[in-house]
Design a protein around this nucleic acid. Structure first.
Lengths: 255, 255
DNA sequence: ACGGATCTTGCACGAAACTGCCTGTTCGTG
DNA sequence: CACGAACAGGCAGTTTCGTGCAAGATCCGT
């Protein structure tokens, strides 16, 4: 091929090859680019760290395999999420109208609902809607909008408008951060508006937050702490850390 | 098949087969992938430990119940659906606004879309929305409404209202029956109204129908045959059976 | 132009991964 | 119960990976 090839050129070519062929083998690259296998390995490793491909034994594959942000978040503290979900599921009674926010914890809640629950569930999250589809007693309403690929929830004016028409008994909010003074916070501005609309339309607001979300705050403020009426968290949290929430009149449940 | 196959590719392919066929046999996989049964067993065991399938004696099954009507329908004629989906995916061009109806064939179409497609996709189907979430170039709009548990699509006034606001380049319709004289038919009245609204809002109407849906009719009429501008079907259909559709001015594509 | 800092590359060597084969065990079926 | 198929665990051979190190290239300020 060519005697001289710049590092960046080589890496660009690797990515190009990955796009066109769907995969690359370290051995082939080494032979075709006429560099040592070590150099190829280094290239692949750094391209992986840069998030441009997915390194596997023997070569590399396109990144979109299963590395979605949602899937990776679902693997964080799964037992805490499950226990919170079980505890929260007990709060739901037959005949209620329930709003389920998106997120991995609320998805666990959806899985934890008893099979014979009779209720009306409203959600912006396609995965939650799917999880509830096999519950014969549930009427599942999907709130439409533009899909946020990371959070797998719908956002936008259509979603907000939909919640204006709904008076729910309870909303289960998957919070990104819950701070005693700052309140409920999240990362995304569009999601914030949808969450705020959910809160507006619900009589009771239950926040689901595992221990490392308590006392933290994200960039976007959704609502003040007093908007929350109940908090479900896991057992790995100091009793003292819960005091500010109790003082604010919030009923705190530890799973 | 191919001489060299990466471990990750092999496992991805196993999951793909499991998704489309509903089950896999260790012996078959060993023969078709050209690896020893031991390797297949190891793959299946580790995929099971990762929670991606359920290992059973002789092969593997989907992890979460396969009892849903949707899952069982997905296993009918998977090859035909996949080939139709691939053929239909070629019809979509960058920049288009595409409506995707619900159903197992259109879900396959969603899986068949190339990863770098840039388009706007509107759908009533949560599973399709999820399948498209990892395509960075797509803007996915979920149309809200009440979820039909069997078909896994949203229906109702909200959905119909949403489609009134949309002018799409093309709609891909998963038809339950397509009869030369009766036209497009389906089983559910609510779904019919949503499908009709989709058709109203699209410049081109592509019907996806495998061979045993052609010439059949379901209880509810969605639209006359002339509403369809293009038909994608599989290769297992007589040329003669396609003649009525061609005579009606429909462009027929056989996958 | 010179010298040092930084980067890149290739090599060596031990660690890890993957695969296939073997052995003994378990499972499903007649 | 008996038989064959499928399974789990251990083992060895091969490939691939990661890291430390040294040689060459490039850059930059003096």
């Amino acid at each position: 091929m060519i005697g001289c090839m710049l590092t960046d050129e080589r890496r660009t070519l690797i990515l190009d090859r990955l796009r066109t062929q769907g995969r690359v083998l370290a051995t082939d690259l080494s032979a075709e680019l006429d560099v040592s296998p070590d150099t190829v390995r280094r290239d692949l490793r750094e391209l992986d760290e840069a998030g441009l491909l997915r390194r596997v034994h023997g070569g590399a594959l396109p990144r979109h395999g299963d590395a979605s942000p949602f899937a990776s978040r679902a693997r964080r503290a799964p037992e805490a999420k499950a226990s919170i979900a079980r505890r929260a599921a007990d709060c739901i009674e037959d005949g209620q109208v329930v709003i389920l926010d998106g997120g991995t914890t609320t998805l666990e809640l959806a899985h934890a609902l008893r099979q014979d629950l009779c209720a009306s569930v409203v959600t912006t999250s396609p995965p939650i809607a799917l999880a509830l589809a096999d519950h014969p007693g549930l009427e599942v309403t999907v709130v439409g909008g533009t899909l946020r690929p990371n959070a797998l929830v719908t956002v936008g004016a259509a979603a907000i408008e939909a919640f204006r028409m709904i008076r729910a008994d309870v909303v289960f909010l998957g919070v990104c951060g819950l701070h005693p003074e700052i309140g409920v916070t999240t990362e995304d501005l569009e999601e914030r508006h949808v969450k705020a609309a959910m809160i507006e339309g619900a009589a009771e607001v239950v926040a689901l937050a595992d221990h490392d979300k308590l006392g933290t705050a994200m960039p976007v403020v959704v609502a003040p702490l007093r908007a929350v009426t109940r908090l479900v968290t896991d057992a790995d949290v100091d009793e003292a850390a819960l005091e500010p929430y109790r003082a604010a009149g919030i009923e705190v449940l530890r799973a």
